[in-house]
Design a protein around this nucleic acid. Structure first.
Lengths: 181, 181
DNA sequence: CCCATAATTGAACAATGTTCAATAGTGGTT
DNA sequence: AACCACTATTGAACATTGTTCAATTATGGG
């Protein structure tokens, strides 16, 4: 209920619009009650972001990886961009939520990220021999980081003006495939 | 003077430690005076970040691009990681500073980013024929975004635990070169 | 020495996250 | 029904944030 309210507020007003009082108003309680449920707002946002990451993973569910790594990877990136586009503010919250110095992420957070990396690994798996698991994980990480960089810079307006997320991610896939196939 | 104080505070305590009052204390004035110089803190941080981006560009000055795109790119990435490592908090401030909805970045900011992209373009230039300027710009953007993604995820602890910035950026270069040479 | 202009102050304001004693509600036991 | 232990919820408070602005102080040319 709290998280639904948080998602609603973030979707409508961005992470900046999310305050303890705005959540309390939305759920019809007062701020004090929130602290019965969450240690602090950062934990609340972390929880929301975990669910966003999980939701993105669900969004990958129907991808068919049987048509080879090229098509699989293309479908994956397509779904990624589809999700970030349909859930702009929620995804921005994942990107923008930075932590106080002493904040330790829950294991659950790393699991959620790991789940997404697994899908990338799955997509590119046919390109690797048994024994090359390290390379596969590394390449999955690189693809993931690159895709992340593209969307992060795009959403913050920090790419050269003429470039689009689509052309960059297409090039990313092509470059990777050309080097690995 | 204000910006020097801001840099000192950010370097020591991160962007989170930067408040109008901490700056005022550092420069021996009161908060009111700050608003004679800057419209608001976001502008102040923007200005600081512009200078960080410019400083990174200066850090690229001595790179020799005569030894071919491979060595040039390697040297560039090396310098990039060197700079982000030596100026961790300042670079985090560039990454983490997200803007209110109505905030328009100065042109000067885009120029600073553009300056860095130019260096990337310069490094990879030998790989492109005259007429392929679009491809070159696109690839420079992609390399830039990828590198950005790697460092952003690393500094936020969001890579798979075993991966390092170094191995990922090396792989990035190798993959790109293999596909383009 | 005066005075217009600029620079600086300091107190105020609203909004934020967070805490916590006080209050209200709940459900089981006698 | 009456009590009670326990939980849930409140609401007022606190410190800290960015920001504003009338009042004060400094400055420098005539």
């Amino acid at each position: 209920m709290t998280l639904d309210a948080a998602r609603k507020i973030v979707s409508e007003n961005g992470l900046r619009g999310l305050t303890t009082r705005s959540i309390a108003r939305e759920i019809g309680y007062t701020v004090g009650t929130l602290y019965q449920i969450f240690d602090n707002v950062d934990r609340l946002i972390e929880q929301m972001n975990i669910e966003t990451l999980d939701a993105m993973r669900s969004h990958y569910q129907q991808i068919d990886f049987k048509d080879g790594p090229g098509e699989g990877l293309r479908a994956l990136v397509h779904r990624y961009l589809e999700f970030t586009n349909d859930n702009r503010e929620l995804w921005s919250a994942v990107i923008d939520h930075n932590l106080p110095e002493d904040f330790q992420r829950q294991d659950r957070y790393f699991e959620a990220v790991g789940g997404l990396l697994n899908v990338v690994e799955q997509a590119i798996a046919p390109l690797y021999q048994p024994g090359d698991e390290e390379d596969r994980l590394r390449d999955a990480n690189l693809l993931w980081a690159s895709l992340y960089g593209i969307t992060a810079l795009a959403s913050a307006d920090r790419l050269a003006r003429s470039e689009t997320v689509l052309s960059l991610s297409d090039t990313l896939i092509d470059t990777y495939l050309k080097a690995r196939v």
